[in-house]
Computed example of a mutant assay.
Amino acid sequence: MFKNKKSKIDPNMTDTLIGEGTHFEGKIRSEAGIRIEGHLTGDIECTGDVTIGENGSARSNVRARHVILAGQVTGNVIASGKLTIKATGKLLGNLTAQELSIESGGIFQGSSKMETGKEIAATDETDSANSVSPAADAASTAVLKTW
């Protein structure tokens, strides 16, 4: 009845959407892109791209390839590629990126650090060595609320 398809995950495609009117609490890890149009509380680790839409907000530390911010993030952002803060975007936290673009009207409050992709990857490896194992992190659960 169900076929087991082993398809390669494309980091250029968005496969996870937190829709408008949705509140999500918990840590998200994804190999493909993520788009937030609702509200998220919890960290995001993404091999692909993360987009926070105009009505989206995240109280979160975000780690992704590219980050497009048209809504609000309260927390730190690490982009191994480019971080774009749109005219409606607001980042309240520190950032590390290889490339940074802030449109007129965009807000950034924090400190910035520009690094090459290799330096960011080395930081990732150091952070991974010092992080809590997934088994120890099992106590944190995800709660999906829709109002």
Rank of each mutant, 00 (worst) to 15 (best):
F2S: 14
K3E: 15
K3F: 13
K3L: 13
N4Y: 07
S7N: 15
I9V: 15
P11S: 13
T14K: 06
D15Y: 12
D15G: 14
I18T: 10
F24R: 07
F24L: 14
E25P: 00
E25I: 03
E25K: 10
G26S: 06
R29Y: 13
S30T: 12
E31N: 05
R35M: 07
E37L: 14
E37C: 10
G38T: 04
G38S: 02
H39E: 14
T41W: 02
I44E: 03
E45H: 11
V50N: 00
T51D: 06
E54L: 01
S57I: 01
S57D: 15
A58N: 01
A58G: 00
R63S: 10
R63H: 12
A64C: 12
H66F: 13
H66Y: 11
A70S: 14
Q72G: 03
N76M: 00
I78W: 09
A79S: 05
S80E: 15
T88I: 12
G89I: 04
K90A: 12
L91D: 01
L92A: 08
G93R: 02
G93K: 07
T96P: 05
A97I: 06
E99L: 04
E99G: 01
S101D: 02
I102R: 06
I107D: 00
F108C: 03
Q109Y: 08
G110F: 12
S112I: 03
M114N: 03
E115K: 13
T116H: 09
G117L: 02
K118L: 05
I120E: 07
T123Y: 15
D127N: 05
S128L: 08
N130R: 14
P134I: 12
A136M: 12
D137Q: 09
A139E: 03
L144D: 03
T146C: 05
W147M: 07
